[in-house]
Each structure stands twice: as C-alpha cells, then as structure tokens.
Design a protein around this nucleic acid. Structure first.
Lengths: 153, 153
DNA sequence: AATTTGGTTCTTTTTTTTGTGAACTAACTG
DNA sequence: CAGTTAGTTCACAAAAAAAAGAACCAAATT
C-alpha cells in the first residue's frame, strides 16, 4: 500500500515530532496522514500500515484529537472514521511553538528578581538582555505573520 | 545553602529544559548555575545541592560541555573546576531553537514532491503555504536579531 | 437474539531512560 | 611512596514511557 519512499518519509516525520516531545506513534501517525494519498486514514488502516496495536492507535488518536491536531469525518453507510490533519491551523500551531520559546522569560524574570548580583553584575546583565530579547520576540510574532501574509498577496 | 525559593526555581528551570528534550539532571544543573550566588558551582557542590550521584553529574557535565552550554575555569591552588553557563551565546542558542522549528520545511518539501494530489489539491495548497511560511521565517530570523539590537541602542 | 464491526479500557510486558555504586585513574600532598 | 582529592567509567538497578493483548462495549447487521 505504501511505497518505500512513503515509509521513509513517515519515519522522518515521526522522528521530527519525537524531537518535539511527542510520543513515537503520535509522530508517525501524523506522518502517515501527511503522506497518505487521500490525506486521511481510518483506524484500521493506521493499525495495518504502521503495524501497531489497536490500543496504541486508540490512545494516540485520542491524544491528537485532544490537542486539536486531527479531526475525523464519516461517510454515509460507513461506520469508519476517516482521520485527517487539521491543516488549517498550522499557523496557530507554529505560533504556539514560537511562544513556547519565550516561556523561558517568565522563569528568567523570577531568577533575576531573586538573585543578589552585587558580586557578579555582568551575569545579571546577560540575564536581563536575554529576557529583553524574549520579550521583544514575543511581541514580534504577530507582526511576523502579518508581514508574511502581506508579502504573499 | 539554597533557599526554598531557589530550589523551586531550579525545579522549574529543570522541567522547562526537560520539555525541550534534555534529561532531567541536565536541566536542573542549568537551573542551579542560573540561580547560584556566584553563577558558578563546583562538581562537589552540584552533587550535594542536587543530591545526585557523582556519576550522574559527571555525565551531565560532559554532555553540557559537548553542547557548549557550560564552561569551567579554575582557581590558583585549587584543583576544583568551577562550572558556569556560557551566557554569551544565549542568542546563538535561541537562533538554533528558531531554526529547529523550520526544520519541518525540509521534510515537508519532500512530502509535497512525493504526493500525487490530483484528488486533493487543497491539501497540497496547505502544505505549500506552510512550507512557504517556514521559508519566510527562516529568512526573517537574522533581521529579527538585527532589529532587536538596533532598537536597544 | 447472535454476530460482526469499530473501537475503548485496563492490565501486563517490553523497551528506554535515568540514575546508582563501586572500582578505577590521574594529579597532587604530605 | 602512601594517602587524598577530583573526577570518570562501567555494570547494574530503578523508574518511566511506550506498546501489546485480552476483555469489553455499543451500534449496526443477519
């Protein structure tokens, strides 16, 4: 059903998502849905194509739905669910990832406040700089998307 | 030696780094170095303050040095190493993290090339849009840093 | 009503990750 | 040279994550 090339892509996509902290199967399912001919797959297909257990797939799909990364639709006279990636919100997802980077600011500010830097003021300066940049970046994110959209049209 | 507040910060910083895929102790060591009064700590101190084994600390420090996240300096007449965060390169680290996000583009482009989207052209369009944005973002990163620096001075 | 289909849930197993402890080394100290 | 200090290495244990498998359930089918 899947070509070698497709299988290889699924693994690569899987590993990519693993690096972001997702569990292996979750990543590979996203891979399958990206690569799949109709951009959708049934529960059964996932079990077969990835050769994993039903329980593993069930859990992974529940997780992906909770995270709003996939949806499913049904077809008349067919009890199966057809799962597909919610591609419309890739930009939201991306925005969330960027914001994730800036999360460090919160803890960093607490560190700065807590530190007594009478001895090493240069260190404090570094921390403040870092925090300032994260703040700057956080504010820049919306403009970034806006700029992209205006550049496109 | 460490206040409750400091311990709490260390744990928070630890968890933050765990989310990025670092192992727990590695994250907590970075936390300790951030919070520590002199912004540096010896091997022994790390073992004691975090109450972990010497071997675990040894491995974590080796890792952090390999990743260029810490350095150490020594003091005359003192065999101990004083480890500290390489704070100068927070911006490089940040840049790497941003680039990490754009890594998806590579695999995405392979997916686009491999897909036969005679049936679902809207899906392909989504993928291309996504890929285009990642490309845009990748290019935007240097300007982002430049803009920050100019805004600062 | 019995069976099949499409899944879910719960317990158990497997695998991976993380950390320990003891033995070891290399450099210094008396 | 014997002992200490500072740290590394390696074999193993503990804990956590991931997946398997069997039992189960609800809706549809025969």
């Amino acid at each position: 059903m899947l070509s070698e090339k497709q299988k290889e892509l699924i693994e690569r996509i899987g590993v990519f998502h693993e690096h972001k902290g997702m569990q292996p199967l979750v990543g590979r399912i996203m891979g399958l849905l990206l690569v799949h001919g109709n951009a959708e797959a049934t529960f059964e297909e996932i079990v077969e194509e990835l050769s994993v257990s039903k329980s593993a797939v069930s859990n992974a799909l529940t997780f992906l739905q909770a995270k709003d990364r996939i949806t499913y639709h049904t077809k008349p006279g067919d009890r199966k669910r057809y799962f597909s990636l919610r591609m419309k919100n890739w930009s939201e997802e991306l925005e969330r990832e960027m914001l994730e980077i800036t999360k460090m600011k919160d803890v960093l500010d607490d560190v700065i406040q807590e530190r007594d830097d009478s001895s090493c003021p240069e260190f404090r300066k570094c921390l403040v700089d870092f925090s300032d940049f994260l703040d700057f970046f956080k504010n820049e994110i919306p403009s970034l998307f806006k700029k992209f959209r205006s550049q496109k049209s």
